[in-house]
């Protein structure tokens, strides 16, 4: 076959070649609501996992004295878990802890009811595997962090930090009762999420830090167990930390 024949053959083949046209597309995005029945074989697959989980999770770890409610400013839930993070942080690291913070969005449920609290409730509160980090911050970085908290309208912070919010700025910042000192280094306990720059905290990304590698959730669970083992109920300290002017 010479070149011309080959060329003609190619043309002929090309003109006969068919393609798959996308002729039509129908769409419905189906909501998987309670109208659908469950497939029994799938329920059977889940069952052993569910049983093991429930056994682990339904363990009561403490008794909440008064409902803990989430809020941006001095909320019962925010105060309780920030103080717990502060206390547990002090036992796990060297040096004095200046304060502890949780970001508002990091606590994932709106409240914890009065009465017995189970391990599963703490999993709901903290489903993500965030770990505890101790940041070593200059006075100036602490001020930046406080300004971020002010801009947001308040975050859960521990008892040792006091500040006012004026407009979107933090003013009158004190730590353990002392005014913020720009020459000092402060040890701040928080989550790796915040330390990695999450929730508009990118100014913290390259700060010196200690990664504990311990899940915040485990910190909360062990802190609550420690309180319970000493025969106490879970009581929040209602002290005012942030004042919005």
């Amino acid at each position: 076959m010479n070149r011309t024949h080959l060329f003609l053959l190619t043309i002929t083949l090309a003109s006969c070649k068919t393609v798959q046209h996308v002729a039509d597309v129908e769409n419905v995005n189906i909501r998987v609501d309670s109208a659908y029945v469950s497939m029994g074989s799938i329920d059977q697959m889940i069952l052993p996992y569910k049983a093991e989980l429930e056994e682990e999770m339904d363990v009561v770890i403490g008794e909440v004295e008064e409902e803990l409610i989430k809020g941006k400013l001095n909320s019962s839930m925010g105060n309780f878990f920030s103080d717990l993070l502060h206390e547990e942080g002090s036992t796990m690291t060297e040096g004095d802890i200046a304060f502890a913070i949780n970001n508002y969005g990091g606590l994932r449920i709106p409240s914890i009811a009065k009465g017995p609290v189970t391990k599963s409730k703490i999993f709901e509160l903290m489903p993500f595997d965030n770990t505890m980090v101790v940041l070593h911050l200059s006075g100036q970085k602490v001020e930046e962090l406080c300004n971020r908290i002010a801009e947001y309208g308040g975050w859960p912070v521990s008892y040792s930090l006091h500040m006012n919010i004026e407009g979107e700025k933090a003013t009158n910042i004190t730590i353990h009762g002392e005014p913020l000192d720009s020459q000092k280094t402060y040890h701040v306990v928080t989550t790796d999420y915040i330390a990695n720059g999450g929730d508009k905290c990118s100014f913290l990304k390259s700060e010196e830090r200690e990664n504990t590698g311990v899940f915040i959730r485990e910190v909360f669970i062990s802190g609550i167990l420690r309180i319970s083992e000493s025969g106490q109920t879970l009581v929040h300290n209602p002290s005012v930390r942030i004042t919005k002017l």
Partner: peptide, 23 residues
């Protein structure tokens, strides 16, 4: 898992320039 997207796609096998059912 609250939603499952569904698309039914119809293909027509035809010449490149011809499609009877194309919308």
């Amino acid at each position: 898992g609250m939603m499952v997207g569904r698309l039914d796609i119809y293909f027509e096998n035809n010449k490149k320039t011809k499609c009877q059912t194309c919308k």
